[in-house]
Design a protein around this nucleic acid. Structure first.
Length: 279
DNA sequence: CGCATATCCTGACTGC
DNA sequence: TGCAGTCAGGATATGC
């Protein structure tokens, strides 16, 4: 499940491959992958355009084009972007829904078994060059930085559990289920504790943990779980799964205190944590 | 208004 | 071994 570190890894890959290239064709075979506009419109808006940059906000990718439009991509649960320099040597994977071809002969392929991900093209762009609808998101911890005071201000109003607030994209952009659990462990806070109950020391640890976990996970090129559904733009696996402390480790001893990691019921979802050292 | 829940979907896993 | 049932979860719509 791509979250901020995975999406940032893909963004860097896009920067190294498709930025500067001109789109010469787009083929949409998966109807659900283009749903905000007719796929013929997406195709004609992209046709002949050059990709000028690769940006990210939260889990959204935004690729500004040379005419002021922006191609927006969200991977959601199972979406993958794959850059193929020599398409004839790489047969398309199952569930390939969109293929963009470039003037130099390479292809950008969108593969998405569960079809939650999507592409769309918009010209409603704000001053920073990002689509207006992305502006509703909270600060991106890696792009904007986030100190303890700013974090406290964003969490103080909420009586929801910390994890619910952390994964709300309007509060902070980019954190999902996996990294919320890892961040709560790093901050020694139970994910089900009320956000409003945090004190200044908690906010300081939480702010530091958000920055550290996301930075280290990005340096490790993200987390590839057992199904290996996340791979980067070139098809390589991430390695941060080797550094997970709680996510998916129910029953294993906590590396910090030795108590078994538990899987908590959490609304309709689950949260992993150590009840020995997360308070 | 704030928070909770249902929804989309397929592949991997669980249990009998 | 096979097969039905369950789970996974990002964002959005809807409900209380």
């Amino acid at each position: 499940m791509p979250e901020l570190p995975e999406v940032e890894t893909v963004r860097r890959g896009l920067e190294a491959t498709v930025v500067g290239q001109r789109i010469v064709d787009v083929v949409v075979t998966g109807a659900r992958s283009v749903r905000r506009q007719p796929s013929a419109e997406l195709r004609s808006r992209l046709f002949g355009r050059r990709i000028d940059a690769a940006m990210r906000r939260g889990k959204f990718l935004a690729l500004p084009l040379d005419d002021g439009q922006v191609l927006v991509v969200h991977l959601r649960m199972s979406g993958r972007l794959l850059y193929v320099a020599e398409p004839e040597r790489s047969p398309a994977l199952p569930h390939t829904h969109i293929v963009a071809s470039f003037s130099r002969g390479g292809e950008l392929r969108f593969v998405d078994p569960r079809t939650f991900g999507e592409w769309y093209v918009t010209d409603g762009v704000d001053g920073a060059g990002l689509p207006a609808e992305l502006a509703r998101m909270g600060p991106d911890p890696l792009l904007d930085g986030l100190g303890p005071r700013a974090l406290a201000a964003r969490l103080a109003a909420s009586r929801r559990p910390i994890k619910a607030a952390l994964t709300d994209q309007r509060v902070l952009a980019g954190i999902g289920n996996l990294y919320a659990d890892e961040i709560c462990f790093a901050a020694r806070l139970r994910p089900d504790r009320s956000a409003a109950s945090l004190e200044m020391g908690d906010h300081r640890r939480l702010a530091r943990s958000i920055a550290r976990v996301l930075r280290e996970a990005t340096e490790a090129r993200g987390s590839s779980l057992r199904d290996e559904s996340y791979r980067d733009l070139m098809g390589d696996l991430g390695s941060y799964q080797d550094h997970h402390k709680v996510y998916g480790r129910a029953g294993a001893p906590c590396e910090r205190c030795g108590a078994p990691v538990v899987k908590l019921g959490f609304g309709a979802r689950v949260a992993y944590c150590c009840e020995g050292c997360q308070l």
